Simulated scan of single mutants.
Amino acid sequence: MTREEVYERLNNVFRDVFDDESITLNDEITADDIEDWDSFEHINLVVAVQDEFSFKIPMGKVVSMKNVGEMVDIILELGK
């Protein structure tokens, strides 16, 4: 899976979770950049990402993610 493929799938997940078709992700996007991305929605997002990519993200990695780029790195690492 390429980084571009991950972004394509992640864009759809984010748009569904936040009900916002205008979301376009990049490496630098953080919770501060997306309206309604609070701690509750973060849990929903992680669950949706895990469902989309069919693997569990370890809690240590979930809490250490600083931006979408790090999320993509984790997905690529776990998807090997």
Rank of each mutant, 00 (worst) to 15 (best):
K61Y: 02
V72A: 03
V62C: 05
N67I: 10
E8H: 14
S54N: 14
H42Y: 04
D27N: 09
L10M: 08
N67G: 08
S64M: 13
V49K: 07
R3K: 14
A31D: 15
F18C: 09
R3Q: 11
D73E: 13
G60S: 13
T24Q: 14
D20E: 09
M59E: 12
E28G: 15
E77C: 02
Y7G: 04
I43K: 06
G60V: 06
D36Y: 13
F18W: 05
V6H: 00
E41Y: 15
D73S: 12
V17G: 05
D36K: 09
D19Y: 02
E4N: 03
D73I: 01
R15N: 12
E8Q: 09
I23P: 10
H42F: 11
E8F: 09
E77K: 00
E52V: 00
F18N: 10
D19P: 02
I75Y: 05
S39Y: 02
V68L: 07
M65F: 10
T2V: 05
H42S: 14
E8S: 11
L78V: 00
R9D: 04
R3N: 08
K66F: 13
L45Q: 02
P58N: 01
L76K: 08
E4G: 03
W37A: 02
D51S: 07
K61D: 11
Q50W: 09
K80T: 10
I34L: 12
F40C: 08
E5L: 08
E52N: 06
I29F: 13
F53E: 08
D16A: 13
V68N: 04
V13W: 08
V72W: 04
V13K: 14
V13T: 09
P58C: 06
G69M: 03
F53Q: 08
S22E: 15
T24A: 09
L76A: 02
F14Q: 09
I34F: 13
S64G: 02
D38L: 04
L45V: 12
E41P: 00
E77G: 04
L45S: 01
D27C: 01
F18E: 07
I57K: 07
N12K: 15
V6A: 14
E41F: 05
D19K: 15
F55A: 05
V68T: 14
K80I: 03
F53L: 10
E8M: 04
Y7D: 05
L25G: 07
E21W: 06
E52P: 00
F55T: 07
F14S: 05
T2I: 08
R9W: 03
E52Q: 10
V68Y: 15
R9S: 10
N12A: 07
P58K: 06
F40W: 00
L10I: 03
D51L: 08
V6R: 06
D51C: 01
A48G: 01
R9K: 12
H42G: 04
S39I: 04
V49W: 10
D73N: 12
K61W: 07
V68K: 06
L10H: 07
D16M: 04
E4P: 11
D36N: 12
H42M: 13
K66G: 15
I29K: 09
D51H: 09
I75S: 11
D33H: 14
